[in-house]
Design a protein around this nucleic acid. Structure first.
Lengths: 253, 253
DNA sequence: CGACGGCTTGAGGTAAGTCAATCCACGTGG
DNA sequence: CCACGTGGATTGACTTACCTCAAGCCGTCG
């Protein structure tokens, strides 16, 4: 079973056996467990290490002067928390675990070597960063031009595709530890309104969500409602021959 | 007078004479002029060249199925349009000129060499991409947690700082070819509401905007209203000794 | 002169927010 | 085993920020 970091990057390119072994070694050297709600990185920090989520769920967020929180992204297994660490002086936002999360620590030095190499790993890391950019752009579209209902539909559908990428689900059911308050902070809505919209999605038999478990009952219609266009995820290999479960992400796009 | 690309990157690091010459040469080899409204890159494109804005203003945008447009970023001189070009298969959004714009073309090959080098230029390019990410995150905060008035204040103040970075203004006055309809598509508001909010900013003697010229009359209060925290721009050298005009961007932050 | 793009202003409508009560699932301790 | 507290979800009545529709203005250009 591949590690999620490798698995994610292999949506972009295929690694050699040696490359896979190297990535496996890197993430197994040092790991740390975080409790739900615990900060992995805090605004203003400068950690010597990069952090890769291996299991659980995390969020990027900012706290505003008035105490409000805006979640800018959810991080699923395989996602890098802080690509910036070896270039920028300090974090401009925080990252917190939303469920029990296992995180691999990779030294800035090792990361730098990976990135400045000529190989596929350097390319895959660039791909990851550029894809993060694209996901964030889509979030801006979400907030600017989709109403609450579409916005939540889009977010849920995107989570499904991203979970697929790293083999965290093979059907339409996924772990979903995100509370409605979190969802509100991510979508720019109030928890009450999120509740109403989720209720509506349930009433329409599009999703089922209970006990931190989300099932997409009607992916096709949900995708339609969300106005979901998968091109921004840049799953270049999505329609390759099926050689592992992660490739099934291609079925959704 | 330094070219804006160099100037922007020197907010992050100081280049050697040779590095500056190299960058100058790269952007002078091939250039192209675009008319207002003309597309520089279109969703689905795969250009062999990277594009750097040298003068004028451009925007990243997406068109939605229903014909609405969402502007995700404004590009000022010194900004790279398409860092993705040598990694991703195709553009997931478009870029258009908003005023007469001069753009330098740099071949993907040359770009790849710059990026995979060990020197300061590679680092500065990474810095640029990571800063784009940070600006986009701030846009999400804007849309999620600031009301129309604060949102527009924030956008205007950010433009002032970014113009400063590349020496496009030394006081509080800048070229502002962005129409209210554009501003509406960038902020997720309607043009009518943008008009009302600009009117309010004018009434409060915070800005003056006519003939495509914007003057920030009261930067201190505008910054306050916007809840502007400059850390996300990562102007690491902002408080260095003042050796060129661009460093005055540091005065605002 | 009229036409047109960009901006402004007003009246009325609606999506989403606010405030507040209630409910439910849980864990914890007496 | 029940009492209780707590975090999360739900529901309802009322408010508001922003939208829609529509008219009118102003400068520019053919």
């Amino acid at each position: 079973m591949a590690n999620p970091w490798t698995m994610k990057m292999e949506q972009f390119t295929r690694f050699s056996h040696e490359e896979r072994q190297m990535l496996d070694r890197l993430i197994s050297e040092r790991q740390r467990q975080y409790a739900p709600g615990e900060d992995i990185l805090r605004e203003g920090d400068h950690s010597p290490d990069c952090h890769v989520v291996l299991s659980g769920l995390a969020s990027r967020y900012k706290l505003l002067p008035n105490g409000e929180r805006q979640i800018m992204a959810f991080l699923v297994p395989g996602d890098l928390c802080d690509a910036e660490i070896f270039i920028l002086k300090e974090m401009d936002h925080s990252v917190a675990a939303m469920s029990p999360a296992r995180v691999a620590l990779i030294s800035g030095e090792q990361m730098k070597e990976l990135l400045s190499g000529q190989g596929r790993i350097a390319q895959a890391l660039w791909w990851g960063t550029l894809t993060d950019l694209a996901v964030l752009r889509e979030r801006v579209v979400d907030h600017g031009r989709r109403d609450a209902y579409e916005r939540i539909a889009h977010l849920l559908y995107e989570m499904l595709v991203r979970y697929r990428m790293v083999g965290m689900t093979t059907d339409e059911t996924l772990e979903f530890p995100i509370t409605q308050a979190d969802l509100a902070d991510a979508t720019g809505l109030t928890p009450m309104h999120v509740s109403r919209m989720l209720g509506k999605l349930r009433d329409e038999n599009l999703i089922s969500l209970k006990n931190k478990t989300l099932t997409i009952l009607d992916p096709e219609r949900l995708k339609e409602i969300a106005g979901f266009n998968p091109n921004y995820l840049h799953l270049d290999r999505a329609h390759d021959q099926r050689d592992n479960v992660a490739d099934r992400a291609g079925d959704l796009v």
